[in-house]
Write a protein that binds this DNA or RNA. Structure first.
Length: 503
RNA sequence: CGGGGCGUAGCGCAGCCUGGUAGCGCGCCUGCUUUGGGAGCAGGAUGUCGGAGGUUCGAAUCCUCUCGCCCCGACCA
């Protein structure tokens, strides 16, 4: 039978959906825009969560939980914030259902909320309101909190993991006595995200600052980690915002400083979402399905019994279980190995391909041959799918540990090389047009250009970008700061930005 | 919310033009044979043909309305 997965070269969007389906990560639900995250997908999220949660706590933050529902008037207080989120808010207006004359359940006209509630699209407002009551003195600062929750932003065009109306995330919120401290915090959390992406997800990301147009509604500075997908499109994989005093002024987060003066706190917020799983898929996976970096693979090793006619299935399963139990006593990257024996009643071929499509880093096939010889047939997800090596049982432990490390490193290297070789610099508008006028089947690059800050407010520049279907992704933090001429305004500037097609 | 496409078994589709017994492939279930690279044979189950109205002796098929999904735009983590 042919692969159920559309090749990337044929239709990248279809490939993405096929990978999700074949790996059984998630599916669309009966509520438009809201997905069902299935066990394999959720297990990946839990591993990301666990890793990041540890980092968040390590940097001094504590977890909290705020309500799903936010009074409508809270949103109104910060002008830019309203403008950014109002058009995608779900609103709760009633608190009771009743049966109408046609026998249908409808919101009761007698049970209209005096003040509508919105389902949180993010929680700056309600957290700001609470912080105002928590802070009186500089001694109450900093406040360093985080919550893991769901949020809702009514999306016009949902895509599994990349853009769903409801999504899971963490949102960190902090308040500080000084601007400097808050800015340090903002960049510190950007570094945490960078570390998470590289060390766990093996996704090389570019740290940068968003230009004014792309900023979070209400922020003074928005920082981002941008990742390059295999089709050359950019994906914003995490953001960290320095909110200045915008929210503390809107929500009255005031304190008395050491000089006995009243001052407004300086706040930050930062988040990553289930979109990271989309980034993961589009960074590493291939035409045979999902490819998982070992550190976030729910099963790092799958053992597949190959049972033939005259074999005793019980002996085979017992043998496999023994190998699993031995491996589970091992640690890799300070975590116990995650090993699974596939004992489903399907054929060994089926199990083999299931493990491939789910991106399991290492497969071990065990049949009579292996039992007799004491040699195990081991194959890697990142190698040719039919290539196996024979490993003596006594060497298995170190082989598995080494191979997992090697896979983890290789994935990051490969993705880094791809990103680097597909990042170019151009110095004329004609060259830029040229790059993005190729047909859609070509993988597109990230393009570095000089871009004067005033171009952001120039409607003709913005129209040019729109016509090329590209956007300014970020001002990379590692820019050299050399002067050049802005492609659009012809003004001299030291500001370089990355432009790209984006998700 | 605009432009395009599509709704028929769990999934993928044919049938519609030209109205007349609800089909095919995969999957699923049972049995046997298999199992080292997405198994074979035999048997079996599964449908308010997206929904509502209309035309008709008769509608998956024709007409009207509606709902939903997908793709492309605008918006966005």
């Amino acid at each position: 039978m042919a692969h159920a997965i559309t090749p990337r070269s044929e239709n990248f969007a279809q490939w993405y959906q096929d990978v999700i389906k074949e790996a059984d990560l998630a599916e669309n639900s009966s509520v438009r825009g809201c997905m069902i995250i299935k066990p394999w997908g959720f297990a990946i999220w839990e591993l990301v969560q666990k890793a990041l949660d540890g980092m968040i706590k390590e940097t001094g933050h504590e977890n909290v939980y705020f309500p799903l529902l936010i009074p409508l008037r809270f949103l109104e207080k910060e002008a830019a914030h309203v403008e950014g989120f109002a058009k995608e808010c779900a609103v709760v207006t009633h608190y009771r259902l009743e049966t109408n004359s046609e026998g249908k359940l409808v919101p009761s006209p007698d049970a209209i909320l005096q003040e509508p509630l919105i389902i949180r699209p993010t929680s700056e407002t309600i957290i700001g309101e609470a912080m105002a009551s928590w802070v009186q003195s500089y001694k109450d600062l900093p406040i360093l909190i985080n919550q893991w929750c769901n949020v809702m932003r009514w999306e016009m065009r949902p895509r599994l993991f990349l853009r769903t109306s409801e999504f899971l995330w963490q949102e960190g919120h902090t308040a500080h006595a000084t601007s400097e401290e808050a800015q340090i915090e903002t960049l510190k959390m950007l570094d945490v995200y960078d570390d998470l992406a590289r060390s766990y997800l093996a996704i090389p990301v570019i740290k940068g600052e968003k230009t004014e147009n792309e900023r979070f509604p209400g922020a003074v500075h928005t920082y981002t980690i941008e990742a390059m997908m295999q089709d050359g499109k950019a994906l914003q994989a995490g953001t960290s915002h320095f909110l200045g005093q915008n929210f503390s002024k809107a929500y009255n987060i005031r304190f008395t400083n050491k000089d006995q003066q009243q001052d407004f706190a300086w706040t930050t917020s930062w988040g990553v979402t289930t979109r990271l799983i989309g980034a993961l898929i589009m960074t590493h996976s291939d035409d045979e399905g999902l490819v998982l970096p070992p550190r976030i693979a729910p099963h790092q090793v799958v053992i597949i019994p190959v049972i033939k006619k005259d074999d005793s299935p019980e002996d085979m399963v017992a043998f496999c279980t023994k190998i699993r139990d031995d491996l589970k006593t091992l640690h890799w990257n300070d975590q116990p190995l995650r090993v699974h024996v596939d004992v489903k009643p399907s054929s060994s071929q089926d199990k083999f391909w299931t493990a491939v499509k789910k991106g399991v880093p290492i497969r071990i096939e065990v049949g009579k041959r292996e039992m007799d010889a004491g040699l195990l047939s081991v194959s890697k997800r990142t190698g040719p799918s039919k290539e196996r090596v024979s490993i003596p049982i006594q060497e298995l432990s170190s082989f598995i540990q080494d191979t997992l490390s090697q896979i983890q490193e290789t994935l990051l290297e490969k993705a880094s090389t791809f990103c680097n070789t597909n990042t170019i610099t151009v110095s004329s508008l004609e060259a830029l047009r040229d790059v993005f006028s190729k047909d859609e089947t070509h993988s597109l690059p990230f393009v570095k250009i000089h871009y004067h800050p005033s171009a952001d407010q120039d409607t003709s520049v913005q129209e040019t970008l729109k016509a090329l279907k590209i956007s300014v992704r970020c001002i990379p933090l590692d820019n050299t700061g050399q002067d050049g001429i802005c492609l659009f305004t012809q003004k001299s500037t030291s500001q370089e930005v990355l432009v790209a097609r984006a998700y």
